[in-house]
Simulated scan of single mutants.
Amino acid sequence: MTSEPLHPVPAPARRTVVAAVGAAGLAVALTACGSDDDASSSSGSSGSSGSSDARAGATTTGDGSAAGGGTVLAKTADIPEGGGKIFKDQGVVVTQPAAGTFKAFSAKCTHQGCAVSGIADGVIVCPCHKSEFSVADGSVKKGPATRALPAEQITVSGDSITLG
């Protein structure tokens, strides 16, 4: 039996390896920094008007949830007029743009998904790129975000604000 000489497979050129690693790294970086502005979501232009719904008689249970469902977030007195409060664990921002009117929005910035961190001068602020959103309707007041914060459903019953 004749054996043919073995020829080693040539190793890829250094330039090819560097280009491949660079392209893979670029793909990872673009994915990590990519904006989700193209994803669909609600406009954030509506929220609870402060009127109660079918859960008007909801009572609070010992675990922070309401007997009619949802999670009790706060008392109405906890939400400053013209401002709001961020509930990190629930991922929601509750605002009171005018006396007795309460709104709720996602606490996730629509630019790159950072959690908003503060509310001042009638705007909800994202710390990552300084996007600002209206406390009244979640609309963009300052970019780079291009989409409003999505509205969240809350119920105001007596002096309690319930998520859901």
Rank of each mutant, 00 (worst) to 15 (best):
L149A: 09
R147A: 12
L149V: 10
A148Y: 07
F133Q: 05
S117Q: 13
K141T: 13
A145P: 12
C114D: 11
I119R: 02
T155P: 03
A151Q: 09
Q153W: 05
V123N: 05
G118A: 10
S134V: 04
S139P: 06
S134D: 08
L149P: 05
C128R: 01
V123D: 04
S157E: 10
G143I: 12
A148V: 06
I154T: 08
Q112E: 15
C128F: 06
G143F: 13
G143S: 11
R147P: 06
V125C: 01
T146L: 15
T155R: 08
A120R: 01
S117W: 11
V116N: 12
D121T: 00
G122A: 07
K142S: 12
C114P: 12
S117G: 15
P127I: 07
F133E: 00
C126L: 08
G138L: 07
D137S: 04
K130Y: 04
Q153K: 14
S157Q: 10
V140E: 13
A145G: 11
A151I: 02
F133W: 03
I154K: 06
S117R: 10
A151R: 08
P150R: 07
I124D: 04
E152L: 09
L149E: 09
S157W: 06
C114V: 11
E152V: 13
V125G: 00
Q153Y: 07
S134T: 03
K142D: 02
I119E: 02
K130W: 03
T155G: 09
A148W: 02
S117C: 09
D137A: 05
K130T: 04
V116R: 10
I119H: 04
E152P: 05
C128G: 03
I154W: 06
D121R: 00
G143N: 12
C128K: 01
A115M: 15
G143E: 09
T155H: 14
I154Q: 06
K141P: 10
S139T: 13
S134A: 08
H129Q: 01
Q153F: 05
H129K: 00
I119K: 02
C114S: 15
S139N: 11
P144Y: 02
A120V: 00
R147F: 09
D121V: 00
S131L: 04
F133M: 04
G113V: 14
G122L: 05
I124Y: 08
G113H: 12
V123R: 01
V140M: 13
C126Q: 03
D121I: 00
I154Y: 08
G143T: 10
H129S: 01
E152A: 13
F133S: 02
P127L: 08
G122K: 04
C114T: 14
